[in-house]
Simulated scan of single mutants.
Amino acid sequence: MRHFDPDELATGLVRVAADGRIEWFNRSANALLAPPGASLGRCPIHQISPALGEWVRQVNGQGRSLYAPEALLEEAGSVVDAYLHPSGESVLIELHPVAERVRQREMADRADRQQALSLMTRRLAHELRNPLAGVRGAAQLIAARGSDETSSRHAAMIQREVDRITALIERFAGNGERRTAPVNLHRVLAQTAELVAAEQHGGLRVERDFDPSIPELAADEGQVHQLFLNLLRNAAQAGAGVVRLTTRIEHGSPLMDRPGGHAARIDVDDDGHGVPEALREKLFLPLVSGRDQGSGFGLAIVQQIARAHGGLVEYVPLEAGSRFRVRLPLDPAVSGDDGQATGESADG
């Protein structure tokens, strides 16, 4: 039987004596709490973290466990779920890093704000349809009268511009009600890759690294197809010659809609010219584009579809090119029951 080594755990473990001094710690705890290259040694815990010192005092005084979710240990710059348990004359501290979970939630919150703006834009687009139709009708009447060549030319120009604006509106407001059904993710990816490669007339190579264990998703196949079509076209328009599609199951995904659940993670990597740093924070907002001729709706629709499915899309700059990482929840049958932590929550 293999010997258990606490230093192999990602969870930080610290045992604190009754006098508040550290008795023992594992490697993960040292990485979370000590400065780089330093060791915790037998320091008093309150010198390492006043918050942990106070919680140890409470556990010793009350004789019961304490739970501090997403505690910011300011001195160490770490965000952790902290569990403290009385153990004889000592207190055992468990530190579970949650920085990725917090980062994902912040991204999800930002995506939700962007989605709210997208919804407002869609409603505004709906309100614009009727007056645009009126403008186009008036231009048609002017053109029909044909009083002079200049007026006819200007009327035709008005009609063309109205048609262009209407097409943009329809393109953004075209995502209606979702129709959920089992979807084969890899079939959708293969179809979109084939379509975009054909559009580029051999100028784009799509590589695939698929995980065959990924089950069918509960999703709207048309919308998922549109999501990846937009991402692949975006890569092509960014000058990519190669796009690589990678799929994996992400266990214990940081997706906030399904904490602790499983997700399908799809990376769309390209070797294009990337996204200017100034655009990255607002990349998924409507009307934001890095191209002169771009409408700015493609990536907004991508995020909108992902959020409607309980997922999230994030942009990751690469040394050469871009990565758009898509997370979509797997079918509920794949995930186990969510557990709930027990114990007393720390205030603040």
Rank of each mutant, 00 (worst) to 15 (best):
E106A: 14
S28G: 08
G37E: 04
R123V: 02
L124M: 10
A108V: 04
V56P: 02
L128E: 05
T11M: 11
P50G: 03
H126P: 02
P35Y: 03
A38V: 05
A68W: 10
G20I: 01
R105G: 10
V16M: 06
E127D: 14
L73N: 06
T11I: 14
A108R: 06
Q62W: 00
E127A: 11
N130I: 10
V91H: 02
P44W: 07
M107G: 13
E89L: 03
A82K: 06
A31H: 14
R15N: 04
A68G: 12
Q115S: 13
L92Y: 05
P131S: 08
V91K: 03
A99E: 09
H46T: 11
P97V: 10
E127I: 07
Q104W: 10
L40C: 00
I93D: 08
E74M: 09
A71P: 09
R101E: 10
Q47F: 14
L95Q: 06
R101V: 12
A82M: 13
L32P: 11
G77K: 08
P97F: 06
R64H: 02
S28N: 08
I48C: 12
I22N: 05
R64L: 06
E74A: 15
L84M: 10
V16R: 02
G41A: 15
A133Q: 13
Q58F: 07
L33D: 01
R15A: 15
N30L: 02
N60R: 15
R129N: 08
G12A: 07
T121F: 08
R105W: 14
L13A: 05
R21T: 14
L95E: 04
L66E: 03
L92K: 05
A34H: 00
P35T: 08
L73D: 01
V98W: 11
A125L: 10
S28C: 11
L32A: 11
E70D: 14
G61A: 15
D19H: 04
L119T: 11
R64D: 01
A18G: 08
R21S: 11
Q114C: 09
